[in-house]
Structure formats: structure tokens, C-alpha cells
């Protein structure tokens, strides 16, 4: 096993199957899954946290989601829907929903009720209380949930290659198929570096978005 594959300049051009293009397709799956997952999970988590109704859903969704094997789910989706991007996105989105749902719920539950009382008592309408007070205060917890969702999905998006799509999983699966362990190693390293970089970017975004008063 060696790093020859990773450092071979031929694998860093912009032709089909090159590492940069695999990274781009990988990120594309990650971003799509995060967007769809957030659109679904965030409002539900906020609603449950705000009203306190159905909190068993928020807590159990977290546990159930974590125990679902993504590869198995993907195969099931492919059987049902055929090959393509959709089954992959469904499998990855299911992975994204639990941490975002749970953190949105936890973020809303952790709010100081006195501050919310003050906001209402000063004459904010319910929508203003949510957007000007509750959401900004819940942001640190929300973003940490988003970060853990992003990390999980970056690592797991390699499954896309198992059903004929691209992404960094190509390096792993093709490498294994032809016993090219240098290629497998290159795939593993790039996924790991990508995960670290993505988390770094999100950490910077968190610093920028979250009020210094909440640190």
C-alpha cells in the first residue's frame, strides 16, 4: 500500500474519474442531502421544541435514524425506485434528518423562558419572537447539529458509488475491485481531509453567524 495513486499528477487533471471531479460530485450529493434534510427537519424540530408537543418524536427520531444502516436503505430504495440520484439522496437525507431535528428541538427547549417572556411582554408578535429572539438564541445548538449531520453525510456519501454514481466512493469501490490498494487509500484520505475541511468551514461560519454574546 502506498500513496502513489494520490500523488500521481495524472489523477489531478480535470478528466473523467479524476480526484477533483470526484470531490465535486461527492460534495454535490452532500450539499443536496443537507439542504433537503434541513428543509424537512428544521421546521419540525422548531415546532416541536417551541410547542413541546410530540417531543417523543424528536427524541426517538434521533435514535431510530442513527441505527438505520444507510447502505441497506440505499439498496432497498434502488430496488423500489431503480438506479439514479433519487435513491441515493433519500438514503443520505434520512441520515441528515435526525441530528438536525434533535438539535432544533434541543435548541428551542434550552431557551431561557424569562427572555422569551420579556420579548412577548415588550410587544413582539409570535413571528418576531421566533425570528428575532428564539432562533438567534438557539443558533449555537442548531449549528452544532448541522455540523454533525454534515460530517456523517460526508463520510457516508461514498455509498453513492455502490449504485453506479460518482463521488469519492468510486476510488474505494473501483480500487477494491482491481486490488489497487493505493487507490483505496487515496479515497480514504481524501474523504477524511474533506470532512475536516468542511467542519472547519462550518466552524468559521458559526463564529460569523452566532452572536458574540452567546459564546
Amino acid at each position: 500500500m502506498n500513496l502513489n495513486y494520490l500523488f500521481d499528477p495524472a489523477h489531478w487533471n480535470l478528466e473523467d474519474g479524476s480526484i477533483p471531479l470526484l470531490i465535486l460530485s461527492h460534495l454535490w450529493y452532500v450539499v443536496l442531502a443537507l439542504i433537503i434534510g434541513t428543509i424537512i427537519a428544521l421546521p419540525i424540530g422548531l415546532y416541536i421544541g417551541h410547542t413541546g408537543r410530540g417531543s417523543f418524536l424528536a427524541i426517538n427520531a434521533g435514535n431510530a435514524g442513527r441505527s438505520l444502516p444507510t447502505l441497506g436503505l440505499l439498496m432497498l430504495m434502488v430496488t423500489l425506485l431503480g438506479l439514479g440520484l433519487t435513491p441515493v439522496l433519500i438514503a443520505l437525507t434520512v441520515l441528515v434528518i435526525p441530528p438536525i431535528l434533535t438539535s432544533a428541538y434541543a435548541g428551542m427547549r434550552s431557551l431561557d423562558p424569562r427572555v422569551v417572556d420579556a420579548a412577548r411582554g415588550m410587544g413582539m408578535r409570535p413571528w418576531q419572537v421566533l425570528t428575532k429572539v428564539e432562533l438567534p438564541m438557539a443558533l449555537p445548538v442548531l449549528i452544532s447539529g448541522f455540523r454533525s449531520a454534515a460530517l456523517q453525510v460526508v463520510a457516508t456519501a461514498t455509498v453513492a458509488a455502490a449504485v453506479g454514481l460518482n463521488g469519492l466512493g468510486r476510488l474505494l469501490i473501483d480500487g477494491l475491485a482491481v486490488n489497487d490498494y493505493s487507490r483505496v487509500l487515496a479515497g480514504a484520505i481524501v474523504v477524511a481531509v474533506l470532512a475536516v475541511l468542511l467542519d472547519l468551514v462550518l466552524a468559521l461560519a458559526q463564529r460569523w453567524i452566532v452572536s458574540p454574546g452567546l459564546r
Binding site: 420579556a118 420579548a119 412577548r120 411582554g121 413582539m124 438564541m137 443558533l139 452566532v210 452572536s211 452567546l214
Partner: peptide, 20 residues
């Protein structure tokens, strides 16, 4: 909301907005 904007409201522990 209109009514409350016209009435000053002070509570125990102040209830200040921590993010502002």
C-alpha cells in the same frame, strides 16, 4: 402587541436578549 409596546415591562433577572 400594540398594547404591550405602549407599556414598559421589567421582570426579575431583567430577561435581556443575550445575543444583542
Amino acid at each position: 402587541a400594540e398594547l404591550r409596546r405602549g407599556i414598559g415591562y421589567v421582570i426579575q433577572h431583567a430577561g435581556l436578549f443575550p445575543h444583542r
